[in-house]
Write a protein that binds this DNA or RNA. Structure first.
Lengths: 204, 204, 204, 204
DNA sequence: TATGAATGAGATTTCATTCAT
DNA sequence: AATGAATGAAATCTCATTCAT
């Protein structure tokens, strides 16, 4: 929606969206590298090159600002492509491996905000909805695969819970432990997810 | 309350450990329910029923106190029993299902401290070591199962990365989303983990 | 000065006086209900439905705006009618009883501005002049009554000080204390004022 | 209660009450001379010679501090002596005349806090209770006088409303208008109050 | 060991005012 | 006349930490 405003061809106009974006960018930069509580509004304003008060002009509170940043981040974590079924799943896992390397900053912020969300209603809701959305997407893929294999689609939800959980857990491990071999882990997850589709049917 | 200390049943010395524990307990209570940054030393002291200054007598800083609490929490998250091999794995998964319900407070704190650890060297190290230890234990079990089945134990580490990751991810989802069906998820994880042991060999 | 502008031929032009008045009205509404320091220019602008900057276009500063509002309010506190002498006094007291009910908002603002005026030169001057004017009007009536009764008009000023003081004090009590019986108080004041005219002559 | 602590003969003890009092004194000084909104916690701390944070250590908020100061001020406004009946009334009026000169600072603060109290629940309650108390005391005196004169004590409350109202109004006028002759006003009030006791009986 | 007063830095937030358009 | 983005100062409040007793 912000984009619409910047698509105005007349570049001479005051473009408040630019300022808002500058602040959002600055907030993301600082928050992802320093953490939620170690980042002050003052620092964000400095990073953005604007007066401190302006941050509150665009975002009512620090919480609201963080929430806006979170929404941006969530979008950046998308790992699914256009392909469907098993091919789509494999492509997504492949993509995830590279995202794990290129989006460390976003992951950093995301994981920290999970923690923040545990004690902050609004952030918590944002995180929860994002997790639900992602899990839902994984469930769709699982359902497609199960359909391809012509077996009971029942366990799709449970499988999605595990797969998305493992994705979260792999993200955490790769952030926390510099020695963690994330490629190996993602490959194993892919194998387990795709092979386990059958047995899951019986046990769930 | 202070009087208890005068029950110097053992050596004539005062027993500071009592006080220290009281503070640790209080810190855990408050931290797990309110979060790291929403909990002040003053509140912890009040919860423990001691003077504010005493907290700094036992713990050099808030960070050190949190670190000490973290160690306690890590111990509480143990899910493995004495059994070995596949039976041990199944028992651990069973146990995990109940721990998910009974240790919400510990999980809350743990997950938040993962976030804190991303920007705090000391907490980060504590978390990382704990995660490595857990993953190592899972790896041991995986190795036992693979041995039982007389197949290549090579993928044990990768499997452990996925399984422990999924455990973390399931913890997060159960904390964040009140509608999350964690039993279903753990059952699916158990099925995937135990059935997928074979295919993992080829793909990793 | 407002009048001059509105003497523009009539309705064909945009009527800035309208805007100015809108702002004044909005300021009165907010100030009287929220208080001086709890009301921001931004709120007043919103209440008036104009841009924030426009408030400063019409009023150099918040102080000036408040001063303008004060003038309006003062006019609204008039309690004297056209009648003279004792009849005029009685009518004024009667009128005061109903004003106490219908102008609570104006009284609210007035009383608060008395407080503000104690530490703000300009507001203080406005309040002082208004009080002097009111007291002068009371003094006129007192003088008429004393003349009617053919006694020394000397104590008129002192009586006015008391009567106007009591009016202020009754306003305050009726604002501050929801259980205050203002009718009873005003009746007593009327009785005391009119009966005391004689004895006052001796003691003052 | 604070006094008790300072009555400890051992003057070597840390006397927190001293610090609290220092802050209260400083707050009164600044508030009465600069006004509620023009006085910052920082200034009060400086006036008291303590760190800013200490003010919040003793008083949870600025509001609470002001409330505490208000209580002190209310005590200082007492104008009644030990005498009873008409003599007591006359003495109180006499006393009031000098208090008007000597307690300008307290009156300043009191009047401003009436204004503040209109939009601040807690301050408002404090003011209301104080006004009720004072009015009650005046009512007692009025009742004594009426009893002395053996007439109906019914109008005592109404008379008190007027007399205390006039006292408030005279305070305001003497603060706001440097030319106001307060002695003259108080004398007139005394005369009106004492002479009007009779007619009031009939009219109220 | 234990207390709690005292410190001082820093964080969020509010707001009157200015200014370019 | 009108807009609303932008500024910068200041205010309240919180808090980890220190220190004298």
């Amino acid at each position: 929606m912000l984009v619409e405003r910047s698509t105005k061809t007349k570049e001479s106009l005051k473009m408040p969206a630019d300022t808002r974006d500058k602040i959002l960018q600055a907030a993301f930069t600082r928050l992802s590298s320093q953490g939620y509580e170690n980042t002050s509004i003052k620092e964000i304003a400095e990073e953005a090159g604007v007066a401190q008060g302006l941050v509150h002009y665009y975002f009512k509170s620090k919480q609201q600002l963080v929430l806006a940043v979170l929404m941006d981040v969530c979008a950046k974590l998308e790992i699914y492509g256009p392909e469907l079924g098993e091919a789509g799943a494999l492509a997504a896992f492949e993509n995830f491996k590279s995202v794990l390397r290129t989006r460390r900053d976003a992951h950093n912020l995301y994981v920290e905000l999970i923690g923040v969300g545990l004690h902050d209603r609004e952030v918590g809701t944002g995180i929860r909805d994002d997790i639900r959305r992602h899990r839902g997407e994984v469930e769709d893929i699982a359902r497609q695969v199960l359909a391809q294999r012509e077996v009971d689609p029942g366990p799709a939800r449970a499988i999605a819970s595990v797969v998305w959980g493992a994705i979260l857990g792999i993200i955490v491990q790769s952030l926390v432990d510099e020695d963690f071999n994330s490629d190996e882990a993602v490959d194993a997850l892919a194998a387990m997810a795709l092979s386990a589709v059958y047995p899951g049917t019986q046990s769930a």
